[in-house]
Amino acid sequence: MTLPLLPADDDGPVFAEPWQAQAFALALSLYETGTFTWPEWAEVLGAEIDAARRRGDADPGDGYYLHWLNALEKLSVSKTGLTPTQLAERKRQWRSAYVNTPHGHPVELSAAD
């Protein structure tokens, strides 16, 4: 279950930003519930990183979790029936929910336009 490029120190994975930890947790959660196998995950993630390298991004570095997120979206689409349109629409709704929520209140999806 190892991923050679995963940003980590001696104690395990490290994350530059909170969303990276959330994306990490989502992938592990989907793996644990059998939505995809680890080889499937490694293959799709590896393909994302390879594609980035071909574009000239030699070092995944900070971009690692962007590749991770791309892989997560692709596998979610191929394995769960979600569509790219649904993902884009939901993202728009979240942005709208933030903008519509007074500061200091919990941001709920129902606040979206």
Binding site: Q22, L30, L69, R90, W94, R95, N100
Partner: peptide, 28 residues
């Protein structure tokens, strides 16, 4: 203070995925 600044784009993408996967019962 009548709005909340949205988080950066990747964070919104993660929230979108997470909420959809939870609704589908695929993630607890």
């Amino acid at each position: 203070h009548d709005h909340t600044e949205p988080p950066p784009d990747p964070a919104l993408r993660v929230k979108a995925l997470e909420s959809l996967l939870i609704e589908k019962g695929l993630v607890d």
